[in-house]
Amino acid sequence: MSGTDLPVLLPAAQQLAERTRREREVGGPIPRLQARHGVWLAVILVFSAGAAGAQAGAEQESVLSIMLKWTPLLLKGFVFNLAISFLAMAGGTIVGALLGIWQISLLPPVRAGSWLVTQFFRNAPWLVLLFFCMFLLPFQVQIFGYVIPLPDWIKATFGLALPVMANVSEIVRGAIQSIPSGQWESSESLAFNRRQTLWQIIMPQCIKRMLPPWMNLYAILTMATVLASVVGVSEVMTLTGQVLSAEGGRTDLLVPFYSYILLWFFIYCYPIARWTVRLERHFAVKT
């Protein structure tokens, strides 16, 4: 056998190279969701539920009926997670886009300040930021004489919007800087001012480039919304814990319920991940 001095098997090395190349194009880690993961989740769910059912006696409810009984409540919690993800993504995207544009400002203080904010929130653990917001944000604010209460979930949404803002800022800055300098030169020589150049010529070309990494970020954010359970928000993880204790703390229900929730997240995030890969491939051909 002709020797190879690779320390790893060649197929594994090729897969790694291919994945790195795709992640570089998308601009971040791609959730490595495959259809077979979903299949495995379903298998685990079915087997664990079966095992739990086998352990239970005849007088106890079947696992399936327990899960179905609690599904409406847990679904409400899951929808709450999705709502948090939408709000955090919307807020983070708007402020992050501004921050990204400020990073290429001609004024040094604006550039430096927005760079600092971006780097700080990008490199801070999301859970730490969440705790920060839970304990530092007031429980109500007064604006123009109106008192607005800030419930926990709003603080958690704000806390999750912060890393989104920083990542969107980098996505936007990266997209703007990837536009060839010839575009800036030709629009300047046509007497466009900087604002016109940015908004009419550069940004429209950036939208396409920003879409794959932005969608990638959304998938990551959705999965991160369960962090809110750590800070006490009543979303799907918290509810699942409460449901399990309501069922008497049966340890044989743990795996079925948590794999059930995992399956929901999978069903939501898998199409997004696949669509991201398709978008990335679609745009890669054009450029």
């Binding site: 060839p180 010839g182 575009q183 030709s186 629009s187 020589s189 046509l190 007497a191 016109q196 070309q205």
Partner: peptide, 30 residues
């Protein structure tokens, strides 16, 4: 720059606009 026009080696057309839109953009906007 309104008095001095420049044409580049790499054309540098705006790829997201049609030919006629490329030609029309500057007189309308600037």
């Amino acid at each position: 720059r309104k008095k001095v026009g420049m044409v580049f080696q790499q054309y540098n057309l705006f790829p997201h606009k049609t030919a006629v839109q490329n030609v029309m953009m500057a007189p309308i906007t600037v």
